[in-house]
Amino acid sequence: MSADLSNNGLAIEFRNVSYRFGTGAELISDLNLQVRRTETLVLLGRSGSGKTTTLKLINALASPTSGEILVEGRPTTQWDPIRLRRGIGYVIQDAGLFPHFTVERNIALVPKIENWPPDRIHKRVMELLQLVGLDANLASRYPRELSGGQRQRVGVARALAADPPILLMDEPFGALDPITRAELQREFLSLQKRLEKTVVFVTHDLREALLLGTRIALMEAGKLVVALSPEEFVKSSDSMVKKYLDAFGSLPANNGTRGLA
């Protein structure tokens, strides 16, 4: 994916985007949102608030009913969807690994369909296993032989395989136990520091949002409520934000946000 230099540091931009499925209710209403290069934007909100749909609009798994989404300065509708998606890493909740592929083949998915030479693919897979903290001898295992945390690491490795500049993560750590989850969150932070990807991260967990996000976009009923840095977010006087903060109880302000972690 070639970078367009004319769009002043924006990786993704939503312009007045609305989306409805068939003739149903609007799932996204008049969304305006900008994602800067190398930032981690967290889409926060309760179930059904439109977070996942917003993510799918970016990699053209859904197309907007009105408005447009620019990726690298170009509307998604003008991208060849296959090319667009191969330039965007995608990680989903239960990893979505192919059960009939070994770990190695799962990670090699995009390089393979991009016709990399086999020795380059193998080298890349080994590199990625190390990057996500997995032992090289797991390469020949099947997903069902891995723990939930290991599967999710494979999911991340697969998304990073072709080194895409953008990463979409849909509640990637949602199904993990609290300890594994905390471990993967920490690793995500250090990985992100090194790789500097543009990340859009969906979660309904406020702590996760404060920990991982450089900015938090709160969504409710298909609308964007606010998009603030974690520090601004905890101090915000917006009623919806307050409601969310209250729901998570006595979250120590400023503690656990990314800047101070």
């Binding site: 090319r83 191969r86 330039g87 989903i92 239960d94 979505g96 192919f98 009939h100």
Partner: peptide
């Protein structure tokens, strides 16, 4: 499993690749 299909599509697999590499084998 629809999440498997969704992941494949999201990674940029074509319909044909999805059919022959994922749907039919599974």
């Amino acid at each position: 499993d629809s999440s498997v299909i969704e992941a494949g599509r999201g990674m940029g697999m074509t319909d044909r690749q999805l059919l022959f590499q994922v749907q039919l084998p599974l």
